[in-house]
Design a protein around this nucleic acid. Structure first.
Lengths: 147, 147
DNA sequence: AATTGACAGTTACGTTTGTAACCATATCGA
DNA sequence: TCGATATGGTTACAAACGTAACTGTCAATT
């Protein structure tokens, strides 16, 4: 009917691939821990980088303030995270994982690593390599076009 | 603190890239036509393949029934799409774009093509090539793991 | 000191989503 | 021919989301 093909359109393909790849992993932390994606990301950010502010978490994991805010609240309720006030600037709060949070983080990163290995098998190392360098190109473009 | 890095984790990278790439295009059809993504996808599917059922649209564009259902409703309200009943099976309805729908489809595919060109410049043809073959690998994996 | 503007984080509100239940119709098997 | 089961599509409900407005605090300017 026309020569446009949704199947070939990069935004569509990228979206579909991301949904497929990310959802399979999300299912794990959702089913086993009842975590949302923003919560998992916040946990991962704090777990790997240690103490951070909410804004820093947002930058690190590319999430909007409100998502971070809600995720922090949820993790705090679960006692996986505690806040402490910055002394010099009372607007800022430092976020840090509790012992329980660190434990959860470690279990989840174990899952994440297992999933990475599974992905390598699923995509083949060539496929993985191509995808990774394609993503790097996108990431470079993102920096350039940072709004 | 640990050797896991969210920044390196493929599901995260893929998600972020997809958000970036798709959102930039989505902004266009959202701002100019007030379309949602499911609506755009449905329009694109029907525009390029002609008459289809709702289920077929869902398969073609990997969307859940409910998304398709709502998108069809919205497009119908806008008079961009009309339904006709299948004679042999009254559960099924065939979907088809109206003249206005086809016109919108054509304008949007023009936008889509322009965006594709812009992406090539943004990512470089090497980056684009890599991304595309990486996505192909994911797509092959999706077929294998079709749930 | 008072005013202004910027910034960290939260909250309210309307929209979009996913899950599951649902209706209507069709098909299969006894 | 009847009952069970499957299928196409819709709807109800709760959860998640984005936008924008908000609170509280800080810094700069006067």
């Amino acid at each position: 009917m026309d020569d446009f093909d949704l199947e070939q359109f990069l935004p569509f393909r990228l979206n579909r691939a991301a949904e497929f790849i990310a959802l399979r992993f999300a299912a794990a932390y959702k089913a086993e821990y009842g975590l949302t994606r923003p919560e998992w990301r916040t946990l991962a950010a704090l777990g790997s980088s240690g103490r951070m502010t909410a804004t820093e978490v947002g930058v690190h994991s590319t999430m909007h303030k409100t998502k971070v805010s809600r995720a922090v609240f949820a993790l705090e309720e679960r006692r996986w995270l505690k806040r402490t006030q910055h002394e010099d600037d009372r607007r800022v709060e430092h976020l840090e994982l509790t012992a329980a949070g660190i434990k959860a983080y470690q279990e989840l990163t174990r899952l994440a690593r297992a999933y990475s290995a599974e992905l390598e098998k699923l995509l083949g190392s060539d496929g993985l390599q191509a995808l990774s360098s394609g993503l790097t190109a996108v990431e470079n473009a993102m920096v350039k076009r940072r709004r």
